[in-house]
Design a protein around this nucleic acid. Structure first.
Lengths: 132, 132
DNA sequence: AGTCATTTTATGCACGCTCATTTAATGCGT
DNA sequence: ACGCATTAAATGAGCGTGCATAAAATGACT
């Protein structure tokens, strides 16, 4: 019988398959309802949420792509394209950064903030429904 | 102050973002290591695992697509294509069902079983590393 | 037997994602 | 000032996924 590594692996598989279940069910429901009711994909909503700066509450928050990337589970290229979609929809602007012309500052437009605030209750309702 | 629904929503958002983190980190690592060490995508591994009948332990298990679909978080079409890839790789066979010619029975080939058994430790190691 | 809804699987298509590469700007070392 | 690695972001290519549909077989109802 094994003696080492006692706390790990009792049933990691069960834990993983539970995580898979929760993740798939919840994200599918989010994707579906956000799309149907507010015309937003889940990634798009998450970008709006990050830009809304839910935590720090700064309404005129300017964020660089790189910072945003670090906060999200999305590759640099996927993020770039997501922002492009949001920009086309008029929900986000890419402002130039004066000190580093490579970078750009992302900002929510008023329409973007409003869309996010409207979608928020839907998002939260789905979470409550799926995560006890 | 609110009185109703006290147990829900205390911090569903925090729980969800933790789920996102665990899911993305773990599945990326699984995808990466399974691909590098055994030439398998995560979905492919999961199909092999389901066919290996880990739970019921029947080595010559024949499973219909529909049954498999119910056990997995994959659409019918994605599953069909995943099985096609596994079939091309010689890891799975699609046998005809005598009583219902629409259906087909899926079975692991010996190579498929061996591939799964070789990959299993990698899978478990990643889970242990990421899930406590 | 004949029609029609249903079920099982495969396939066309569009979309979002990742990876690799490109373009442009920055900063460091000399 | 001059090269050169580094960094920020955009873009091309390829892949897996889901949705909608197609194709084929089955079952039920008359």
């Amino acid at each position: 019988m094994q003696v080492m590594e006692p706390p790990t692996e009792p049933d990691v598989c069960a834990k993983w398959s539970e995580t898979l279940r929760v993740y798939h069910d919840t994200s599918a429901a989010l994707e579906c309802e956000l799309q149907a009711r507010h015309g937003l994909g889940l990634s798009e909503f998450e970008v709006l949420q990050a830009l809304a700066g839910q935590c720090c509450g700064d309404p005129g928050r300017k964020v660089r792509m790189k910072e945003l990337e670090a906060e999200m589970y999305l590759s640099q290229s996927a993020l770039s394209r997501t922002v492009t979609r949001l920009e086309r929809a008029g929900l986000v602007t890419r402002d130039e950064c004066e000190y580093d012309r490579r970078a750009n500052f992302l900002m929510l437009t008023p329409a973007g903030r409003e869309r996010w605030e409207t979608a928020r209750p839907t998002h939260k309702a789905v979470l409550i429904r799926h995560l006890d």
